[in-house]
Each structure stands twice: as structure tokens, then as C-alpha cells.
């Protein structure tokens, strides 16, 4: 039996890698992909704990997370498309209207 601790450790590592990816990348799209990585890490954690506590609720949540992530990806990409149309760029460093 693989202990749940291992899976949790893996989830933690994945999450942190997602964070690093977010800060390394420079355009909206790839940063969005990093966010997806983080979401998956969260899913993994859910399942690990579900197995550990012996309840099925974790799997339910994972199902919903996947669904919502899909919807979110759709909308997010639509927005990125809009931004691209208006600004002709999706480099985050160029999008600083919030400055000041």
C-alpha cells in the first residue's frame, strides 16, 4: 500500500511547481496553464485525503473541480482572446493599466 502521505507530498510539489511556472512565464496563456497545474495539484490532494479517510466525498469534489476548471478555461481563454484583439499582445508586462 502506498501511503497517502506520498501522494500528498507529490501534490505539494506539483503545486509549488505551478507557482514557479506562473512567475517564470511571461505571457497570459502560459501563465494560465500554470494555474491549471495548480488546480490539478489540488485535485490530487483531495483524492489522497479521500483515500486516507476512507470517504468518497473527495472524489465528488474532484469531479466538480474538473468541471469547473473546464468552464473556467473556456471563459478565461475567451477573455484572453478579447485582450489580444484589443491590445495586440498578451504579454503580461505590457498590460499594466492598473499602475498607480
Amino acid at each position: 500500500m502506498i501511503p497517502s502521505a506520498a501522494f500528498l507530498a507529490l501534490a505539494a510539489l506539483l503545486f509549488v511547481l505551478g507557482i514557479i511556472a506562473f512567475f517564470v512565464k511571461k505571457d497570459l496563456l502560459t501563465q494560465f496553464m500554470a494555474v491549471e497545474v495548480m488546480l490539478n495539484a489540488g485535485n490530487l490532494a483531495f483524492l489522497a485525503l479521500a483515500k486516507g479517510f476512507g470517504r468518497a466525498d473527495g472524489q465528488m469534489l474532484v469531479l466538480f473541480v474538473i468541471t469547473v476548471a473546464a468552464a473556467e478555461a473556456v471563459i478565461g481563454l475567451a477573455i484572453i482572446v478579447l485582450v489580444f484583439r484589443q491590445r495586440k499582445t498578451i504579454r503580461t508586462d505590457d498590460l499594466k493599466d492598473l499602475k498607480g
Binding site: I19, F22, F23, T92, D93, L95, K96, L98, K99, G100
Partner: peptide
């Protein structure tokens, strides 16, 4: 304090972190 408001998403994300 204005320095903190760079307008860059990454800086805000750093704050989150």
C-alpha cells in the same frame, strides 16, 4: 506606497503568495 502598485499582475500574485 505607490511603488507597490506597479500594475503588473505578477507583482500582485507575489503579494498573494
Amino acid at each position: 506606497l505607490n511603488v507597490l502598485q506597479s500594475g503588473l499582475v505578477r507583482d500582485y500574485a507575489l503579494a498573494f503568495l
